[in-house]
């Protein structure tokens, strides 16, 4: 079981954080593929699927998109009421990462970004989330999970 990558999209639909984990010693890459077609297409697909999901059934019952899988990958999505989207790409065998995504938001994002007065929260069009403490703490958290490798 493996976690491949982790993305955060802001409420302006921009990828403000992208982190790829490679199974080697180099530790992967950070904020390299924010503008990549993969990130954009993935966001567009999740966006459309989420809209379809919310149109199924009546309005009262929240029908949130949580994950979707392909032959070799599974995408996990968590969206906050403020429109931030946290996405993890994993092995298809991992079926639920909602609590992990919630932890990334409610603990790591809130403490290192929202409560960090000098970090932007509403990212301008060329700003990225590059706060070193956020990167190292989320790396440590994710790599400590049994599903990481």
């Amino acid at each position: 079981m493996t976690l491949h990558s982790f993305y955060i999209f802001d409420r302006h639909c921009r990828c403000v954080y992208s982190r790829e984990y490679t199974q080697g010693s180099d530790g992967g890459s950070t904020n390299r593929s924010n503008e990549s077609d993969t990130a954009k297409l993935m966001f567009g697909m999740l966006y459309s699927l989420k809209n379809i999901a919310s149109k199924l059934g009546d309005k009262e019952a929240r029908n949130n998109l949580k994950s979707l899988s392909t032959g070799k990958f599974r995408l996990h999505l968590f969206e906050t009421a403020t429109g931030l989207r946290f996405v993890i790409v994993s092995d298809p065998a991992i079926d639920n990462l909602q609590s992990v995504l919630w932890e990334l938001y409610s603990n790591y994002y809130v403490r290192n970004v929202a409560q960090n007065a000098l970090s932007p929260v509403d990212f301008a069009c060329d700003e990225l989330l590059a706060n070193p403490k956020f990167v190292s703490e989320t790396d440590r958290f994710l790599s400590s999970l049994p599903v990481f490798r």
């Binding site: 929240r62 009421a81 403020t82 938001y105 809130v110 929202a114 007065a117 929260v121 509403d122």
Partner: peptide, 18 residues
């Protein structure tokens, strides 16, 4: 307020009000 809302949501787990 822009920052506080995140802490609020994280603490309460609230969803958007109807």
């Amino acid at each position: 307020g822009m920052r506080l809302i995140e802490e609020f949501l994280a603490k309460t787990g609230a969803q958007r009000c109807q």
